[in-house]
Design a protein around this nucleic acid. Structure first.
Lengths: 116, 116
DNA sequence: ACTATAGTTAGCTTTATGGCTAACCAATCA
DNA sequence: TGATTGGTTAGCCATAAAGCTAACTATAGT
């Protein structure tokens, strides 16, 4: 599935750093490589992974390859998280309602006990 | 870092399914295992990974281990994504402003050209 | 006490990940 | 045209991931 690859791509600090850099705009492979101590081929691998996850797109013109962020892929993750949040918040709401109900019952029981 | 493990944990469909199940409330290891064809020890490994990522907590009472979602860990991811979104949206805003500026300039140039 | 249930441990395989070097194109620039 | 720059391929290594089976422990139920 798509999510596997997006989450997988984001599970590495180097790749998250690349994504963060690309949030600020396009960059060439060389530019992306500068902040890292890594050998170029290693970094290229990360870029490949980011590309195959759909998080990054790149195009080569002349001898330089420009990379750019594909924000839709990040949005996919946001959507998934939002969906989970909705489910667990609904549940917490139900739970809260349930607790409220219990409290009221308890109160009315207390009244009954007093009036006995 | 924490994010590495959370993203890593979520990069597997089985584990995401477990998380989704836990959004609906606590569950024992056995309950969690039911929907999968996997052998128990394999599934346990996933649970361990979810635990060490902070996404899931579990406690054993008697012979059953109950697992529950730790929503803060998911929130961490949401926060990271939101931060990235903010950066790239700011940039897009700046870009838009820049384009607007260019358009205006173009208009005034057109006026100049006409009035020549 | 005996059996069944619910997990757990240990150890094995296969495949993927993250890193490296060395050698290799292909565009520019001088 | 020759050197430099920017990236790419190929191949190696160590470690981690994802799955399995088999055997074990510890609680509950009868």
């Amino acid at each position: 599935m798509q999510l596997d690859h997006v989450f997988g791509a984001l599970s590495d600090a180097t790749r998250r750093a690349i994504v963060m850099r690309l949030c600020d705009g396009e960059a060439s492979v060389g530019e992306l490589a500068k902040p890292f101590e890594m050998a170029l081929p290693s970094l290229m691998k990360h870029i490949r992974i980011l590309e195959s996850s759909g998080l990054v797109a790149s195009e080569k013109t002349g001898r330089v390859r420009m990379c750019s962020l594909q924000t839709e892929a990040l949005a996919t993750v946001e959507v998934w998280l939002a969906a989970q949040r909705e489910i667990w918040e609904q549940r917490l709401d139900r739970l809260e309602m349930y607790v409220e109900k219990l409290k009221k019952k308890e109160k009315s029981n207390a009244r009954k006990r007093r009036s006995k």
